[in-house]
């Protein structure tokens, strides 16, 4: 479809040939971490072993050990499920809600659309972290409240994106033809509009997983998310604070994992966008 339409969007920076496969590999490894951590991690993520307290990286402990003598590599592997899992849940929930909301708003047009978009604007004015503090205060600390508060601030982005796409697509000839044939609004939306919107949403979801991961770990770092001894990545960094002057590995490896993961998702998102738009 892009061959027919003149495109007025900026050229996206295309990832070089090697980077996309590497990013894909990273994601495959992460999925393995999340699905079968027990097969990959050499040690238990929670069992204490005081004899090996705060040991630097070695062959026995790739990422070193923490203040309880636990293997940090094992903790990171087991933590994938919490950190990345919650990030993915947030983005999917936001996308689902945002797509439905945006589609309804775009199809309704007129004053209903206006009111619905005003509500979306309201959410954009909200300070994200402060809302998360308030949510965590009310329903208690934990990954559940992190997921809830981040979903509350994340969905409006999808609503706005989808509504714009729906407004644009509904004027296209194929939709007009369907309307002239008497196809119902719902069917038009489902069969003739949403499949096109899906491409945009896919790109956004992929990139957003990385950002959501950074947000989740930030809230855990502040002590709003998982509780010790859950090996959640942000919490690992929080726990490393008293020791990081002497045990650099405790800070470096969990942080590098967050960075690698976020970068991998944003690279894949970029290459999806390039394939679709370029």
């Amino acid at each position: 479809m892009s061959a027919v339409l003149p495109t007025a969007r900026p050229r996206r920076s295309r990832p070089r040939g090697v980077l996309a496969p590497v990013a894909l590999l990273v994601i495959v490894i992460l999925i393995a971490f999340a699905l079968v951590p027990g097969l990959i991690a050499p040690d238990s993520p929670v069992a204490l072993n005081m004899a090996d307290r705060l040991k630097p990286p070695s062959f026995a402990h790739l990422f070193g050990t923490d203040e309880g003598g636990r293997d940090i590599f094992s903790r990171v592997v087991f933590g994938t499920r919490y950190s990345l899992g919650v990030a993915i849940a947030i983005v999917f929930a936001s996308a689902l809600f945002g797509v439905v909301y945006g589609a309804v708003s775009g199809m309704a047009r007129g004053s209903a659309d206006n009111v619905m978009m005003r509500i979306v604007d309201l959410f954009f004015g909200f300070p994200a972290l402060v809302l998360a503090l308030a949510v965590a205060a009310s329903i208690g600390r934990g990954l559940g409240s992190v997921a809830l508060s981040l979903t509350i601030i994340w969905w409006p982005g999808y609503a706005r994106l989808v509504r714009g796409e729906v407004l644009r697509l509904r004027e296209r000839p194929h939709v007009e033809a369907a309307r002239a044939l008497g196809v119902s609004n719902l069917t038009i939306l489902r069969r003739h509009i949403l499949p096109f919107v899906a491409q945009e949403v896919n790109v956004r979801v992929t990139t957003d997983i990385g950002y959501a991961l950074v947000a989740v770990t930030a809230l855990s770092f502040l002590g709003l998310g998982a509780n010790s001894p859950t090996p959640e990545w942000g919490l690992l960094i929080r726990d490393s604070r008293p020791y990081f002057g002497s045990a650099w590995w405790y800070l470096v490896f969990p942080g590098t994992m967050i960075m690698l993961t976020a970068t991998a998702f944003s690279l894949i998102g970029d290459s999806l966008a390039a394939r679709r738009g370029g």
Binding site: G210, Y211, V214, T217, A218, F221, G234, I237, S240, R241, F244, G245, W248, L251, V252, G255, I258, M259, L260, T261, A262, T263, S266, L267
Partner: peptide, 20 residues
């Protein structure tokens, strides 16, 4: 590419480690 993935709290601590 790398910067958007760096958590701000981690970067802060890394700078403390380095410069302090």
């Amino acid at each position: 590419m790398v910067g958007t993935g760096i958590p701000v709290f981690w970067l802060g601590m890394a700078l403390q480690f380095m410069f302090f």
